[in-house]
Write a protein that binds this DNA or RNA. Structure first.
Lengths: 121, 121
DNA sequence: AGCCGGTTTTACATTTCTTTTACAAGTTAA
DNA sequence: TTAACTTGTAAAAGAAATGTAAAACCGGCT
């Protein structure tokens, strides 16, 4: 069964799950196998928390209880390659795992102000 | 088996017990694990007093007789994160414990006056 | 063998979360 | 009222997770 339209896309990032292609600001992003698998898994579950165990299981085949820092290292490389969007795209959920977030235009409006007031600032 | 409707909601606060999500005035409230567990336990027993022992037992696994101020500290952090509703939501029952109260619109009518007189003030 | 790209480990720094400490402030009972 | 006790609070200490750079490892290649 062939799945069509299997790609993620937002303002800056594009991930083609079929062809293992990633594009950042319309420039190809070269990722290693593990880096791609990790990113793909996170992006496939965009906006949802993916626990460390799940990542370690699905990307590395590690069962729980295996103590390793390789996940963190790969996360770091991904963030680096995502350059200035790295931290925004890949959010760490302390004690749980990571979450990929869709790109959102940064708002200069303080979020604690009601919308109708914010137009002034 | 998926349990539906496992959430609390009032005018300002929303607690999703399933997903560990809390929203204050429709803005996500980031809580640590302990903070969430504490709030969840209180909210789950809304309008009822939850004794300190119970909180310390269910959230920390502490048996009675353990002298600690960590509960108070966490209560404080919760109140702070609930910002201006903190004191209203989390009520202290001296010598017993705490009670979460549903939000009630503050009335500018002195409560010691009969309603029909209050229209003048 | 030696090189090379990819991956993992190591060791330490940093950050985040939790608990304790010490004291202030509030409450109750005598 | 004071004395005993409870809760509030800020700051320090402690514990644990994550970030990071660099070294070590590993398999495929020439």
């Amino acid at each position: 069964m062939v799945q069509h339209n299997s790609l993620y896309r937002d303002e800056h990032l594009e991930v083609d799950f079929q062809r293992n292609l990633v594009t950042l600001d319309s420039a190809a992003l070269v990722l290693t196998r593990k880096e791609f698998e990790l990113l793909a898994l996170l992006v496939a579950n965009a906006c949802e928390i993916v626990p460390r165990d799940v990542l370690l299981m699905r990307v590395w085949g590690y069962s729980r209880e295996i103590r390793t820092r390789t996940l963190d290292v790969h996360i770091r490389r991904l963030r680096k390659k995502l350059s200035r969007y790295g931290d925004q795209y890949i959010e760490t959920i302390f004690g749980v795992g990571y979450r990929f977030q869709r790109y959102r235009e940064p708002s200069r409006i303080p979020s604690y102000l009601p919308t109708f007031m914010a137009t002034v600032a």
